[in-house]
Amino acid sequence: MLTRARCLMTTTGRLSAVLVDLSGTLHVEDTVIPGAVEALRRLRQCPLKVKFVTNTTKESKQMLVDRLQKLGFDVQPEEVFTSLTAARNLVEELKVRPMLFVQDSALPDFEGIDTTNPNAVVIGLAPDKFNYRPLNDAFRLLLEGAPLIAIHKARYYKKSDGLSLGPGPFVTGLEYATDVTATVVGKPETTFFREAVKTLGCAPEDALMIGDDVRDDVGGAQVAGMAGILVKTGKYRPGDEEKINPPPTTVCDSFSEAVYYICNKILKT
């Protein structure tokens, strides 16, 4: 642990920001991961900036914040950076009018965005909209040169009644039809992590990511130049730490232990 901590110090210089994954790291659905509420409080007492980062496709930022607050976490909307935020930022940067494939529950995150006479396609998770006619409309826009923006490319997700198709298959199908390559905005894309730390006014090298997904959280953050802590909660499975190279900066049993590690090993080394 100490060797790793020294190694982290030398690669990051001075740690100034921590990015925290939500689902699987702080909570699983409506259950708090033991010790996480108190650990977050401790983290906030450190001289560190904190941002919460998540790949959400159907929940708006406000819905996420409401849930976290109900569970007892001290989280404000402006501290949350989601794949929907990243998609919105890209839409604004490109100055395009998107055709939005997102569920109605995610629409608040696109409030104020002009979607009339669209000239871009944004694909999130939209089971109610992934049908032949709307996809055909999207296809025709892409042929006219509209950019394709994917919130992420997950193959499927778990629903109460079984596995269900995620956005990835539909993005892949449209890419095949048009030879257009989608710009993916969520984790594990490098731009996602860079944008998230940019909002904190610091460089990736001075930031650290804590998450339960070895590829999407830890691997993605490390590729972006950050340090990464893998927690053994949520979707973690034994052996996950060996799935990426270089391996996670460190592995902790939980968010609570990760905060202890940051406060007592990194900041005090």
């Binding site: 032949y132 996809l135 055909n136 296809f139 025709r140 042929l143 193959r155 499927y156 198709l165 995620g166 990835g168 298959p169 539909f170 892949t172 199908g173 449209l174 095949y176 039809a177």
Partner: peptide, 22 residues
């Protein structure tokens, strides 16, 4: 895709690719 009288239309290959990827 193929051509319909009202424009180009997605063909079966697109859905084949979607299922292949999934």
């Amino acid at each position: 895709y193929y051509k319909e009288t009202d424009g180009l239309t997605l063909d079966v290959g697109v859905y084949m690719k979607a299922l292949e990827y999934a």
